[in-house]
Write a protein that binds this DNA or RNA. Structure first.
Lengths: 219, 219
DNA sequence: TTAAAAAGTTAGATGCGTCTAACAAATTTT
DNA sequence: AAAATTTGTTAGACGCATCTAACTTTTTAA
């Protein structure tokens, strides 16, 4: 049974491994907001448990077992988010902080039951995939809205980064997952995009926003 | 924000104060299964925070603030138990261990929402009262079944001690809260009781069991 | 009322997760 | 290739929550 702290390290490594090829101690310490020696120290312990591969001065990686454990924690996090959002009436901007605490709860059955009650969902309220019970995860490779052409019609599928700020912004713009978005024009100067979507015509989205919106192109 | 450990100390003191008049360090250390010096050490810290009253060699008590905080934790525990039992399909013998972990979650809103979804329940699945948001608690003074007379008819309202074993026993006997129980006879030798209740005629309950069943007498 | 027992206290140690300061290795720049 | 920069390591400390061993105070019993 890893401590909550160790679970957070596994989760951080899991998440970094999706973004970076080679994970450094510096990356890890930044992700968790701890000092580099702290991360270094913990990594040695995780190695003892055979959850990470690590040699002095070399990049980090999760072992198969470590990755499986991390995926289970992410699974618990995302099932909880879904549960809070779909069955308890929370907004997608409220669920992260609670799920962050609930993901450490030791009870197979609690998360099994959430899964059942939700009808075995495959994605969380932000469109991120929910890992399976065996620790596998089906990553979808969505395009960023910022990479689409003028005139394209796309469906909003997921978000790159689930910050409160982005989620509040999207709430104010009435933009939600599943929305069909038409790209009216792209401003060459700052790469801001003019779009229309259900009930909202001619909305301007900055590059900062559009590169965080993951979409599927309709052909 | 007290640590989870400190919350557990507050809860233990709260619970002991219902059972004992004077709380000793020994009582506390037994309740939490820690050594006496450990309890002593923590009590000093709780005193610093003004959550407990304490003088060397004197008995312990919660301050008003300490009691309020403890009651809120118990509230979170019991709301969670109720949520798991009524809305997620868990048995009354399964809810304690999960609630023990969830009671430490920092989120007013989560427990507010449970409360609403449950329709503002006043007792948990074992019949214990749920403290109000302001930290007050309405204790009911039920009689033990073991204290009732032959021939009496009573309603099972709550349990004295919610051990897995007792709960499993009651499950096997089909005995649940709200059951109307008739006392057929009491065996003077070992104080075991013969009872009947809905669909179950002539069931023998040992003194160990009957003194853990809290009932309301029908007059 | 004194001796024995129980309860409580103090001191010092341990593991966890964290830090800073000082140093070493690896990488990048000039 | 040497110097500068970045990255990683080691050492030593700290707070939290825990322990055991040794001691003191309080309570109980002889």
């Amino acid at each position: 049974m890893p401590s909550q702290t160790k679970e957070n390290y596994l989760k951080a490594l899991f998440s970094l491994s999706k973004k970076t090829q080679e994970i450094s101690l510096t990356d890890l310490s930044k992700e968790l907001e701890v000092s580099i020696p702290t991360a270094n120290n913990m990594v040695k312990k995780l190695k003892e448990h055979k959850w990470v591969n690590y040699q002095k001065y070399k990049p980090l990686s999760l072992t198969d077992e470590g990755r499986r454990m991390a995926a289970i924690i992410v699974r618990k996090h995302r099932l909880t988010e879904m549960f809070l959002s779909r069955l308890m009436g929370f907004g997608w901007e409220e669920v992260h902080d609670i799920a962050e605490q609930m993901e450490h709860i030791k009870s197979e059955k609690l998360f099994e039951r959430m899964d059942e009650l939700l009808g075995f969902p495959t994605v969380d309220p932000h469109g991120s995939p929910i890992p399976k019970k065996d620790g596998t995860i089906e990553e979808r490779n969505y395009k960023k809205l910022s990479e689409c052409q003028e005139g394209a019609t796309v469906i909003l599928k997921a978000l790159e980064n689930n910050s409160q700020e982005l989620l509040h912004f999207l709430n104010r713009k009435n933009l939600m997952l599943g929305a069909t978005i038409r790209i009216l024009s792209i401003e060459p100067f700052d790469l801001s995009i003019f779009v229309s979507y259900y009930g909202n015509e001619g909305v301007m989205l900055s590059k900062e926003v559009s590169e965080r919106l993951l979409v599927e192109q309709l052909d």
